[in-house]
Design a protein around this nucleic acid. Structure first.
Lengths: 191, 191
DNA sequence: CCCTTTCTGTAGTGGTCGCTATAAAATAAC
DNA sequence: GTTATTTTATAGCGACCACTACAGAAAGGG
């Protein structure tokens, strides 16, 4: 019953996601969103609530699509070393893919925003990613596959920092080859 | 001749610097600046021009004070290895110093801003920093102090990425010890 | 004292922000 | 066809943005 929606909600959400990805939460305006989504403000608000909720949906969608390579890499390799190596290699590929904005949305979209909820939401995702790396390393350490003096938390912080640096480099124009070299060098820190 | 200025220009500039450092260029408002600087808008504009020029002065001041440790580290050690080691160690210290905002202003203040001039100015400083690391490594390579297959540009990109990751980690709440561990692990990539 | 110059605080400029009241248009149920 | 419901587009809300016109206050030179 009622008039049918004239736009595809999923496509509009993907466009909004890319706008937030490119400009961050605060620098993305409703005017910019309606422009790329092909939708007028009242339709946007009827379909997504408000800017904050639309951003939340965009982040969730990002995690399930563009950002899903990370958990797949950590879960889909027989050793922690192979998992982290794949994680870094796929980050180099995804962060420089010209089909979408460069770098990682979780890392960049919350920088320089004043909304504490947005900052905390993204920081939480970053901390969860770091913890996932740490747990994967600890699993191999407990299985005796790594030297006993292995410092899993320090390694996890290191690789998280490298990935965040790769995201910044990608936004500054680094190529996939540049980031591949960064990934290779980072693996020299493996115990 | 004329009425004397009622505020200290240098102190006001340092306050503005820290405000830009903490919130970035675009998220820093004139109202926020006048509040921390203890100055009314007309005095700010008379003394510094406009927001864009005040930011330029703040960046220059940052490079000459809080950010000067980088060029000092690269110029003040006998080997490239010692220089980069000192660079990373001092970054860990400075980025987590509670006396000022966390992380590096050059790395974070331009994220998610729409002004292309601001983006390019900061990106230029980052590229200059990366080039300085590369030249320091090349100097040792040409002197025969490093293996002949040493890839100076790749190493420079790697250490620049690590430093940028350390800045992000610091803004996420990492301690100096956390960043020291990252620096130590990064040095394992040294040729 | 007066006059000029510069700085100061108040109060506002037009423009954009996120968001919405309103009413016409389009669909479904009857 | 009629009615009820939902989406559409237009137009505009108060709040904030960077920035400034204006007038009074404070200094130096005569």
């Amino acid at each position: 019953m009622g008039r049918a929606r004239a736009f595809d909600r999923d496509i509009a959400l993907e466009r909004a996601l890319e706008e937030f990805w490119r400009h961050g939460y605060e620098a993305t305006s409703i005017a910019g969103l309606t422009a790329v989504m092909g939708v007028n403000p009242p339709s946007l608000y009827a379909a997504f609530g408000d800017k904050r909720r639309l951003f939340g949906e965009a982040v969730r969608r990002y995690q399930e699509t563009h950002g899903a390579f990370a958990s797949r890499a950590l879960a889909g390799e027989p050793t922690a070393r192979a998992a982290v190596e794949r994680l870094l290699g796929e980050a180099a590929e995804v962060y420089t893919d010209p089909a979408h904005p460069p770098g990682c949305m979780i890392i960049s979209a919350g920088v320089n925003t004043s909304d504490p909820g947005v900052i905390e939401e993204l920081r939480g995702h970053r901390e969860a990613g770091k913890a996932a790396i740490r747990r994967r390393i600890e699993r191999d350490a407990e299985a005796g596959l790594l030297p006993p003096e292995t410092d899993a938390p320090a390694l996890a912080t290191f690789f998280a920092a490298v990935i965040q640096g790769m995201s910044t480099q990608a936004r500054d124009g680094a190529s996939r080859e540049d980031l591949d070299a960064v990934a290779t060098l980072a693996m020299r820190a493996w115990p």
